[in-house]
Every structure is written in structure tokens, then in C-alpha cells.
């Protein structure tokens, strides 16, 4: 029993580092489209405050909130959105000389969140999702 928890902790840290490195590698070198599913990958940013995790996603040509589908767990959000107009890449060989009409993005969150209390808004084709953190910070009174 004794020191097993230390090895367990090291193993978990190792897994976490590997997961982060894989994510960085994926973000840096993966093309921003999925030809097989005719999906584009949107640009996004994740901001963390003491109370919440804020995810913003740039979705040009997505004009109606009904065209956005968001699924969230404690650790990640998956966004799918349909464009109002097809994006043509007919002159680009690397894009398969075709058109795309969907976005899809899976985003890992920096902290566990309460999905049921999350709110989202679409403004100027930018989707903003505010997810309250599961473990909030509490104020400690100074005596």
C-alpha cells in the first residue's frame, strides 16, 4: 500500500502532460477542415475567470441561433453549426475543390464546469458560451 499513491499520482500527471502535448500538436499541425465530413474547423479562444470558463468561437456565415448545436460535459464542449451560405473552395486543391457548409469543433475545458447553468449567445457570427465552474472560489473574510 505505502507508496503506491505516489506512483499513481505520477502516472496521472504523466497522462495529463501527454494529453496536453497531443492537444498542442493537434492544434498546431492539423488542417482547419475535415474533407471526409465536409466540415470546417472554426477559430476559437478559451478564457478562464475565477467563476467561469468562457468559450468564444468565430462562425462566419452562421446567422441563426437555431443553426448552432452545443453539447457539453464537465470537461469539454462540442459545437456544430450550419452555415447560411456554402463556403466555396472550388479553386483550392488542398480543400478538395469543393464547398463546405458546416463547422465542428471539440474544445477541452481548463476546469470542470456546471453544464446545466451554461449560457450561450450568438452575436455577429461569434458564439460565446459561458460555463460556470464546478468548484467556485469562496471569499475568506479578513479579521
Amino acid at each position: 500500500m505505502g507508496e503506491e499513491w505516489i506512483f499513481d499520482r505520477i502516472r496521472k500527471m504523466h497522462e495529463e502532460i501527454e494529453r496536453t502535448l497531443r492537444e498542442i500538436e493537434r492544434e498546431l499541425f492539423k488542417p482547419l477542415f475535415d474533407f471526409e465530413h465536409r466540415c470546417l474547423e472554426p477559430l476559437h479562444e478559451v478564457e478562464e475567470t475565477p467563476e467561469e470558463v468562457i468559450v468564444r468561437v468565430d462562425l462566419p456565415y452562421v446567422r441563426k441561433k437555431e443553426d448552432v448545436k452545443i453539447v457539453a460535459t464537465e470537461e469539454k464542449v462540442i459545437i456544430e453549426a450550419k452555415m447560411s451560405e456554402k463556403a466555396l473552395f472550388s479553386d483550392l486543391v488542398t480543400y478538395g475543390r469543393t464547398s463546405y457548409h458546416m463547422y465542428r469543433k471539440e474544445i477541452l475545458l481548463p476546469a470542470p464546469v456546471e453544464t446545466k447553468k451554461a449560457k450561450a449567445r450568438l452575436r455577429g457570427c461569434i458564439l460565446e458560451i459561458r460555463l460556470p465552474k464546478k468548484h467556485k472560489m469562496y471569499r475568506i473574510q479578513v479579521e
Binding site: 498546431l28 482547419l32 472554426p42 477559430l43 468565430d58 462566419p60 463556403a87 457570427c125
Partner: peptide
């Protein structure tokens, strides 16, 4: 052309951010 520019400059934006 705002939306088209935003869509087609995603790769340059991503590289620039890095």
C-alpha cells in the same frame, strides 16, 4: 465581404497567433 474574409483567413490568423 466580412464573413468571407474571416472564413478564408483562418489559417493565417492561427499561424499569426502562434
Amino acid at each position: 465581404q466580412e464573413e468571407e474574409i474571416r472564413l478564408k483567413l483562418r489559417e493565417l490568423m492561427q499561424r499569426t497567433v502562434n
